[in-house]
Design a protein around this nucleic acid. Structure first.
Lengths: 191, 191
DNA sequence: CGATGGTAGTCAATTTGTTGAGTAGGTGCG
DNA sequence: CGCACCTACTCAACAAATTGACTACCATCG
């Protein structure tokens, strides 16, 4: 129901092709909304049909032609109305948590490895966030940016993503310690 | 694809009816996997057909009969194998974040209210986690529990849920402050 | 020269997920 | 005594998401 608005929100950044959006949804938006390219192309079709976005074909010389999309006035109005409505509750699908929940009786070393992988992934994500943050700030100081910038929405969601990954990392550290104690990978400290 | 395993993992807690599972998926599991009752009933049907769970009908006197489900040996093996496989990446759908991303140009007071609602909801969730935690500990000290308890998976996922909600709350506090500064709901401090 | 990988998509099939209604008895409230 | 709410589901229809394959052309590496 609201991949629609995730797409419209992404188009606030400016004109994009479906392919561009697929990349955006893979890196930044994917923190709080995910979509496969196929979903995006379908959704763009529908949004253009409903007059919420405009499409124009760009002829290219050495690569396939592409269609670029922009928000229309109607699309922007719709998006702003959506932004003021109460959100539906957050939905999370985290297979790792199902695996952790079911870990007892299975191989603890395997679970440990999965958690370490997740932590490594979180670290990578934090690094990407930091780069994006610098890019958004554009040399300005954070306080100044938050006071004066035209758009702060993307920065606020960036903060949420960062906060989430930091919490993931802290959780991971705690769990690794617990597993090490319980299954003594670390050996006895007093020997 | 893995509502299947979320259900099997829930059955580690012991024999349950579809109705019981629906309640469990509404309170505890819903932190990292969600499902509607209809999905559960369909999934239970399939799992029983595949021999991963056993079903038995319990006749009841003053209420409808129910079917109780238990893990079979095959189901447990399948679950343990799943637990050691690499998870697919986490998928989050958070409408609030889409609204925050698109807030610029819309009504900031409305966004502010949505964030406060979310924070209130997080506080409620933390309180429920704390009750569940006490229940799991059953009077034991945490260190002791994590060393000796038969199952720690549910406790570890509980920790993750708590960690997530705490991070949500911290984020909310920061954002409220930013919005107040920017749109001066707080007025000038020096008056 | 062949393989790999990027751009920019489309199509079809299947699986999941969501919504709404229906059944059927019981309990508790005022 | 009537109404809402709880237990415990079932059915049907629809919407959304996922998977995999396919098209086509270009650039780059070895």
């Amino acid at each position: 129901m609201s991949l629609k608005y995730a797409v419209l929100a992404a188009l606030l950044e400016g004109e994009s092709s479906g392919y561009d959006l697929a990349k955006i949804f893979d890196v930044s938006v994917s923190n709080f909304w995910s979509a496969t390219p196929q979903q995006l192309y379908r959704e763009l079709e529908r949004l253009a049909g409903d007059g919420l976005i405009d499409a124009r074909v760009v002829q290219q010389e050495r690569r396939p032609n592409k269609r670029m999309f922009t928000l229309t006035e109607a699309g922007l109005r719709d998006l702003h109305a959506f932004a003021a409505e109460p959100p539906r509750p957050i939905a999370i699908r985290d297979e790792l948590m199902v695996k952790v929940q079911a870990m007892d009786g299975a191989d603890p070393a395997a679970t440990r490895a999965l958690i370490e992988e997740r932590m490594e992934w979180s670290r990578g994500k934090l690094a990407r966030y930091e780069r994006l943050r610098r890019h958004l700030l554009g040399g300005r100081d954070e306080t100044e940016y938050l006071r004066d910038a035209e758009r702060i929405g993307p920065y606020l969601t960036l903060m949420a993503g960062r906060s989430l990954e930091e919490s993931n990392l802290r959780w991971g550290e705690q769990v690794l310690e617990i597993l090490d104690r319980r299954f003594n990978y670390a050996g006895t400290t007093g020997t």
